[in-house]
Design a binder for these strands. Structure first.
Length: 127
DNA sequence: AACGTGACCCTAG
DNA sequence: ACTAGGGCCACGT
């Protein structure tokens, strides 16, 4: 006798994580910054913040490789502490800071100044 | 198929 | 207040 083992579950929407993160980050207005956790939370609080960063890296690399315009302003995404953790993954170690400062965001010690004030939460802003 | 890695976050002591 | 550990998801080998 075999246990029936109901199919159950198997919802797995299999949404394009890449595209999803892509879109959310793209909605981040200039001069503002968001965090991986915020994006992850907006996507369902289950996606895992790590995957968000991974998607961004892939997106940036893809854009650079495809020579298409960078659709994802990854420089506007920082960690929960407001630190530019991904600055090392940019074309240049200072690209992220330069880009943020170009938008009016002050960066000190590889961290966003007034991060809390410039913080842009999709779940709150976009509701 | 399993293990390890990675731009993380949260909770506990 | 600080430090330590576990958990989450996705991708490469």
């Amino acid at each position: 006798m075999k246990t029936p083992v109901p199919p159950a579950a198997a919802p797995a929407p299999e949404r394009n994580f890449f595209a999803d993160v892509h879109e959310v980050v793209r909605l981040v207005p200039p001069g503002r910054v968001t965090s991986y956790g915020a994006v992850a939370h907006y996507l369902g609080a289950r996606t895992g913040s790590r995957a968000v960063g991974y998607a961004l890296m892939a997106a940036n690399l893809d854009a650079a490789t495809l020579k298409k315009d960078a659709p994802v302003p990854a420089h506007r995404v920082v960690n929960r502490l407001g630190q530019l953790t991904g600055r090392h993954h940019f074309p240049t170690p200072t690209a992220m800071r330069e880009r943020l400062e170009a938008e009016g965001v002050r960066v000190a010690d590889d961290a966003v100044v007034d991060f809390k004030r410039l913080y842009w939460d999709p779940s709150t802003e976009l509701e």
